[in-house]
Design a protein around this nucleic acid. Structure first.
Lengths: 329, 329
DNA sequence: TTGTAGGCGTTATCAC
DNA sequence: GTGATAACGCCTACAA
């Protein structure tokens, strides 16, 4: 059913039908009613593809995420989708994985589909490959990075003070008498590296030399958390606190402690980062650095929508993290 | 950059450029090379919107989900997205919530965007409102429902024997000496109602009358699981096993037992359904009825892709669930 | 091997 | 108020 079909049936021109369908003024009330009735009878829906072509706007945005299955990510995607949907935008969610190549491919694909704007979820997108791809594929369209930033005129960053947040976490532990701390770095994203910096700074403040620090690396799965915790217990049986750069591996780590009857938090206190759904599901409930995912999502959606409608925003904004204390500390 | 721009620069016609861009035969090797070079130099990408208009295909599919934040749902969406992406399709994921009205709106929106096919995730979409909307909005396009089915010529269902699976769960409990069982019904979707039927059938088999059965209702959150468990303990302190219709509320329930020092599984055995990520995160690890989410996703994607390319499939297929035993039983 | 012309379904700009 | 007509960017007969 196209406007032409309807026009033929009504005995009017296609433009008249178009005007009625778009609630434009300047139509005799009688014709309007008649055509409106036909529109409903034949269940007419304007072809968004054709409309997009002439309007030069797809009314779709792209959301790039490395892996939406991680609770923290899906929450962000969910909130962004809900927000932009209110303004009639659809979300094209793409899981890119960690490789630069797939990130670039995804950006090219989105530009080919002419999305009106893009949100990149996570500081992992703060890299040269992505920057270059954005520069050629989206030179004008608004782009927002959550938890990261790249230097381009049309790119906005919504940042969280994770370095400062991690320093606060160390002090939080220290205040509870935990000074022998291990830090578990998830992977080398800019965000995680600033957490590491925060850890180092705060530990030095406590009088530890950089060489003494217990810094380990483990990806973001339960199993990695288990493995690294076993290793830490092996190498530092006197550990008093463990700060994981992300929640899921912290949960894996806690389970090892539980199984070995090392009391949490009595003997070892544990913290994560992301304040995700996992924190309430595991046992004991996990204290976590809240990096303001929900707020970040709303801000990212708002800034993107502003950009789509020509409103300006500062290119970077910063949100402040806080610690959500639960049972593990 | 359009094919016309490139054509002008190259001094050829737009159709020649189009042919080169689409790797069509019948072009002199020399012109091909020259144009290919220009295409790359100017970073040309065909406008998918325009291409979609003429090809009458958006190469997008719609994925309808009530709430993608639930681990089981996001896993399904993830696998579908990955599968269709391999064939060059994009996924438009829409969170509809539970209301019929929003489900219908979402279907209309997807048809307006002319997606080539749709996957509905969960038996909650097996209802009259959705059936009617599909009939008018997608009379010809392939549609797949996971864990459900509606009677329409172009709709496929990927089903799981949850009724039988629930019977098996009851027997599984009985074999471990648990005969005083409570069943917690998440909400009244067709899928959950067949779980309930399975529970009833198996309990009758064990010699319980329908009136004696401990059947409760609680939505799918941690908090609901807590609340209902407290109520059950109140009303039936002698309960020996609890079967939750979904994992998350089971986790909430287990925490109540843990807090009251009721040993799981020693005193009360607990099971969930979905075999989701939550099962490994909680404590003790949750035994769960695996309703074959991963397999269902792959089948749904395959059937949809088959439909998109004109290949036929049986309108319904059934997968068989199994129990994944962990620590809670 | 290449170019021309028509069409995909809309919207928007002019006339009438 | 309404109707032609020309885009939007691409593909594809058909013609040359």
């Amino acid at each position: 059913m196209t406007i032409y079909d309807i026009a033929k049936i009504a005995g009017v021109s296609a433009s008249t039908v178009s005007r009625v369908a778009n609630h434009k003024p300047g139509i005799k009330e009688e014709t309007r009613k008649q055509i409106q009735a036909l529109l409903e009878e034949y269940n007419y829906r304007p072809n968004e593809t054709a409309r997009g072509l002439v309007k030069q706007s797809s009314r779709m945005i792209g959301i790039l995420i490395t892996d939406i299955r991680y609770a923290h990510h899906v929450d962000i995607a969910y909130h962004i989708e809900q927000e932009v949907e209110k303004q009639g935008y659809c979300s094209l969610i793409v899981n890119t994985g960690l490789s630069d190549e797939k990130k670039v491919k995804a950006i090219e694909m989105l530009s080919q589909r002419r999305v009106d704007g893009v949100i990149l979820v996570g500081s992992t997108f703060q890299c040269d490959a992505v920057r270059e791809a954005l520069a050629v594929c989206f030179p004008k369209e608004p782009v927002v990075i959550t938890n990261g930033y790249v230097e381009l005129p049309n790119v906005y960053g919504v940042l969280v003070d994770e370095r400062e947040g991690m320093e606060a976490s160390v002090r939080f532990m220290a205040k509870r008498g935990r000074r022998k701390l291990a830090f578990i770095l998830p992977n080398r994203t800019p965000s995680n590296l600033s957490k590491e910096k925060g850890f180092i700074a705060a530990m030095e403040e406590l009088g530890w030399s950089r060489e003494q620090l217990w810094i380990y690396t483990a990806p973001t799965t339960l199993e990695d958390g288990r493995r690294i915790t076993e290793q830490i217990l092996e190498e530092h049986p006197d550990v008093e606190g463990m700060i994981f750069g992300e929640d899921l591996s912290a949960v894996g780590g806690m389970r090892v402690l539980l199984d070995r009857q090392i009391h949490v938090p009595g003997q070892v206190a544990v913290m994560g980062v992301d304040n995700s759904r996992y924190c309430d599901i595991c046992y004991p409930k996990l204290t976590s650095l809240n990096n303001k995912m929900v707020e970040m999502s709303f801000e990212a959606a708002r800034i993107l929508l502003d950009g789509l409608e020509g409103r300006k925003n500062p290119e970077k904004i910063m949100l402040f993290s806080n610690i959500v204390e639960r049972e593990s500390t």
